[in-house]
Simulated scan of single mutants.
Amino acid sequence: MNVLDAWIRAACAELDLVPADVDTVAVLDVARDVAHNVLRPGAPVTAYLMGIAVGRGADPADVAARLTALAVGWAADGQE
């Protein structure tokens, strides 16, 4: 187990969540895309927004795909 896995397990235990429900790769991928294509501070905020959307019932894979597409196209759309 690496430090990230240990942190996720500890945070999940603290929040009464199940570590298996955390798609770490998807969250990190979206955070990377936002940080590189939009703005670094946008990465943790976007991860938080992902959590809100998923907590309200949105499909995690759909949320990740939509946010990645938005981030990748951000500069191309003239948004800055």
Rank of each mutant, 00 (worst) to 15 (best):
A53W: 05
P19I: 03
M50S: 01
V3M: 04
G78P: 08
V45E: 05
D77S: 08
A71W: 00
A75T: 04
D77E: 07
A64C: 04
A47W: 04
D29R: 09
V72H: 00
L17K: 12
A61Y: 03
V72S: 01
A6Y: 11
M50D: 03
R56P: 07
A76P: 09
D21Q: 10
L39E: 09
Q79A: 11
A71S: 05
A43D: 03
A75N: 04
L4E: 13
D5N: 07
L15Y: 07
R9H: 13
D77A: 12
G78A: 06
I8F: 10
W7S: 11
A31T: 09
A13N: 14
N2T: 15
A10K: 14
P41E: 11
A10R: 15
R66W: 00
A58K: 15
A69T: 06
V72D: 04
D5I: 03
G55S: 02
V63D: 00
V34A: 02
T68P: 04
D23G: 02
V30A: 08
T24I: 14
A75G: 03
G78F: 07
L17A: 10
D5Q: 03
Y48Q: 10
E80A: 15
A26W: 09
D29A: 04
D29G: 09
P19H: 07
A26E: 10
A71V: 00
V30P: 07
L39V: 08
W74E: 00
A47G: 14
W74L: 00
T68N: 08
A76T: 11
G78I: 03
D62M: 05
T46N: 03
P19F: 06
I8G: 11
L49F: 13
R56N: 14
E14T: 13
A65F: 01
A71D: 04
L17R: 14
P60K: 02
V22I: 09
R56A: 13
R32G: 06
D16Q: 14
V72W: 01
A76G: 13
A13F: 13
G42K: 01
A47C: 08
A13H: 15
R40P: 10
A69L: 02
R32Y: 08
V54I: 15
A61V: 08
R32Q: 07
V63N: 01
N2Y: 12
A10L: 14
A71N: 08
V63G: 00
V27R: 06
P60M: 01
A61Q: 08
V18F: 08
G55C: 01
A20C: 08
A61P: 10
D21N: 11
L70W: 07
L67W: 02
A43L: 03
D62C: 03
P60C: 04
